[in-house]
Amino acid sequence: MALDELYREVILDHYRNPRRKGVLEGDHIHAEGQNPSCGDEFSLDLAVEDGKIVDAAIQGIGCSISQASGSMMAEAIVGKALDEVTDLTHNFKLMMSIVDGENPVDPDRPGSVLGDLEALQGVRRFPVRIKCADLPWTTLEDALSQVG
């Protein structure tokens, strides 16, 4: 049923055991986001060196979708060049129909564009929850806009 598609095991795992939870100590940029209508909060520390994200740390309070999305995002962006992160963000937003365009994710194809993040596909069937999945990504965009 649709609910099991939404709440896949990998999502619940990221919700209950968020990766890269915490704050960064050294030089980093910081951004915070929230959905005022529901109260969800997400904050992000990024260490950027030579056009590449070398470290990330997240904190947040909210539903499984927003928090799992943030945890998976943090995992996915570390080690990536900034333009790769921009692509990833765009592909994520395409998958969630947050921006218009064809869904880049083919569920039958191995070797995916988005990795674990594809587990969030099920959210598409629940339009009121799409903004939950999007919260970490708008926070990421805000953080990246601070990069020189």
Binding site: A2, L3, L6, D40, G62, C63, S64, I65, R129, C132
Partner: peptide, 12 residues
């Protein structure tokens, strides 16, 4: 279970 997730399940 976060309240929004509960509300989504109940909505279903």
């Amino acid at each position: 279970i976060h309240a929004h997730d509960l509300a989504t399940v109940l909505d279903e």
